[in-house]
Deep mutational scan, measured.
Amino acid sequence: SDFTIRIGDRTLHLKNVSEEILKILEELLRRGIDFEELRKIVEELIK
């Protein structure tokens, strides 16, 4: 499924993301992860 994360004025667009990855990202966001850290993790996950 497609997913968009907005943190402040920044946006991260994800396409064809599995439910498992979404759950991980949601947990990281709940813990207050930094946007740049989140972006790096996402890039690793979707390689």
Rank of each mutant, 00 (worst) to 15 (best):
S1N: 14
S1Y: 15
S1T: 12
S1F: 15
S1A: 08
S1C: 09
S1K: 14
S1M: 14
S1H: 15
S1G: 14
D2G: 05
D2P: 00
D2W: 02
D2S: 05
D2Y: 02
D2R: 00
D2H: 02
D2T: 01
D2N: 02
D2K: 00
D2I: 02
F3W: 03
F3Q: 04
F3L: 14
F3T: 08
F3I: 15
F3H: 09
F3C: 14
T4I: 15
T4H: 11
T4C: 12
T4G: 01
T4R: 04
T4S: 05
T4P: 02
T4L: 12
T4Q: 11
T4F: 13
I5G: 00
I5D: 01
I5M: 01
I5P: 00
I5Q: 00
I5N: 00
I5R: 00
I5H: 00
R6E: 15
R6A: 15
R6I: 15
R6P: 05
R6T: 15
R6L: 15
R6K: 15
R6G: 07
R6Y: 10
I7D: 05
I7V: 09
I7L: 08
I7M: 06
I7W: 09
I7T: 01
I7P: 00
I7R: 00
I7A: 02
I7N: 01
I7K: 00
I7F: 07
I7Q: 02
G8T: 00
G8Y: 02
G8L: 01
G8E: 03
G8C: 02
G8S: 01
D9A: 04
D9H: 06
D9E: 09
D9N: 10
D9Q: 05
D9R: 03
D9Y: 03
D9I: 02
D9W: 03
D9C: 04
R10G: 04
R10Q: 15
R10W: 06
R10E: 14
R10V: 13
R10I: 11
R10K: 14
R10F: 13
R10T: 09
T11Q: 06
T11K: 03
T11V: 14
T11I: 13
T11C: 07
T11E: 13
T11F: 08
T11G: 01
T11H: 08
T11D: 04
T11P: 01
T11W: 05
L12C: 02
L12N: 00
L12W: 06
L12T: 00
L12D: 00
L12Q: 00
L12K: 00
L12M: 12
H13V: 14
H13R: 06
H13A: 06
H13K: 06
H13E: 12
H13W: 01
H13I: 11
H13G: 01
H13P: 02
L14I: 10
L14R: 00
L14D: 00
L14Y: 04
L14P: 00
L14M: 04
L14V: 09
L14H: 00
L14S: 00
K15C: 10
K15E: 10
K15H: 13
K15Q: 08
K15W: 05
K15P: 07
K15D: 04
K15V: 12
K15T: 13
K15L: 05
K15N: 08
N16H: 06
N16C: 02
N16Y: 04
N16E: 05
N16D: 09
N16I: 04
N16P: 01
N16W: 02
N16V: 03
N16S: 04
V17H: 01
V17N: 02
V17Q: 02
V17A: 07
V17Y: 01
V17L: 04
V17T: 05
V17M: 04
V17F: 02
V17S: 03
V17D: 03
V17P: 10
V17K: 01
S18C: 01
S18V: 02
S18I: 01
S18Y: 01
S18H: 04
S18R: 02
S18E: 05
E19D: 13
E19M: 10
E19A: 14
E19V: 12
E19N: 11
E19G: 13
E19Y: 09
E19L: 08
E20A: 06
E20G: 08
E20W: 03
E20L: 03
E20D: 14
E20P: 15
E20K: 07
E20Q: 08
E20R: 06
I21F: 14
I21K: 09
I21C: 02
I21Y: 09
I21L: 11
I21E: 15
I21V: 15
I21T: 15
I21W: 10
L22Q: 14
L22K: 15
L22A: 13
L22V: 15
L22I: 15
L22S: 11
L22M: 14
L22W: 07
L22G: 12
K23G: 15
K23Q: 13
K23R: 10
K23P: 12
K23Y: 12
K23A: 14
K23D: 12
K23H: 13
K23L: 11
K23I: 13
K23N: 12
K23S: 13
I24R: 11
I24V: 11
I24C: 10
I24P: 08
I24L: 12
I24W: 05
I24M: 13
I24S: 11
I24G: 08
I24F: 08
L25T: 09
L25C: 06
L25V: 15
L25I: 15
L25M: 04
L25G: 02
L25A: 11
L25R: 00
E26A: 06
E26N: 11
E26Q: 11
E26P: 04
E26D: 09
E26W: 04
E26C: 11
E26R: 10
E26T: 10
E26F: 06
E26H: 10
E26M: 09
E27I: 09
E27D: 13
E27N: 09
E27R: 04
E27H: 07
E27S: 08
L28F: 07
L28K: 07
L28T: 08
L28V: 10
L28I: 08
L28G: 03
L28M: 10
L28R: 05
L28Q: 09
L28N: 08
L28A: 10
L28P: 02
L28W: 05
L29Y: 03
L29M: 11
L29R: 03
L29V: 11
L29H: 04
L29W: 03
L29I: 14
L29D: 03
L29T: 08
L29C: 08
L29E: 04
R30C: 11
R30Y: 05
R30M: 10
R31L: 10
R31G: 07
R31V: 10
R31C: 06
R31I: 09
R31P: 05
R31S: 08
R31H: 08
R31F: 06
G32F: 02
G32S: 06
G32D: 14
G32L: 02
G32T: 06
G32P: 13
G32R: 00
G32W: 02
G32N: 12
I33R: 06
I33F: 06
I33Y: 12
I33V: 09
I33A: 11
I33D: 08
I33K: 09
I33G: 08
I33S: 09
I33Q: 07
I33H: 10
D34T: 13
D34W: 01
D34G: 15
D34E: 14
D34V: 07
D34N: 10
D34I: 05
D34A: 11
D34R: 07
F35S: 06
F35N: 05
F35W: 05
F35A: 07
F35M: 07
F35T: 06
F35G: 06
F35K: 04
F35D: 05
F35Q: 05
F35H: 04
F35L: 07
F35R: 02
E36M: 06
E36A: 05
E36S: 05
E36Q: 07
E36Y: 05
E36G: 03
E36F: 06
E36P: 04
E36N: 08
E36K: 05
E37S: 12
E37R: 05
E37T: 12
E37L: 04
E37M: 05
E37C: 03
E37D: 14
E37W: 02
L38F: 12
L38I: 09
L38W: 03
L38S: 01
L38D: 01
L38N: 03
L38Q: 01
L38H: 01
L38G: 02
L38R: 00
L38Y: 03
L38K: 01
R39Y: 11
R39K: 15
R39T: 15
R39L: 15
R39D: 08
K40F: 11
K40W: 08
K40P: 09
K40Q: 13
K40I: 13
K40S: 13
K40D: 13
K40A: 13
I41N: 10
I41A: 09
I41C: 02
I41F: 08
I41L: 09
I41G: 03
I41W: 04
I41Y: 05
I41Q: 10
I41S: 06
I41T: 12
I41K: 08
I41R: 09
V42A: 14
V42L: 09
V42N: 02
V42P: 00
V42E: 01
V42W: 03
V42R: 01
V42F: 04
V42T: 11
V42H: 05
V42S: 11
V42M: 08
E43S: 09
E43C: 03
E43I: 08
E43D: 14
E43Y: 08
E43P: 07
E43G: 09
E43A: 10
E43R: 07
E44K: 07
E44W: 04
E44R: 07
E44T: 10
E44D: 12
E44Q: 11
E44N: 11
E44L: 07
L45E: 07
L45G: 05
L45C: 03
L45T: 07
L45A: 09
L45W: 05
L45P: 03
L45F: 06
L45M: 12
I46D: 13
I46S: 12
I46V: 13
I46T: 14
I46E: 14
I46H: 12
I46F: 15
I46L: 15
I46M: 14
K47R: 09
K47I: 13
K47S: 13
K47T: 14
K47N: 14
K47M: 13
K47C: 14
K47Q: 13
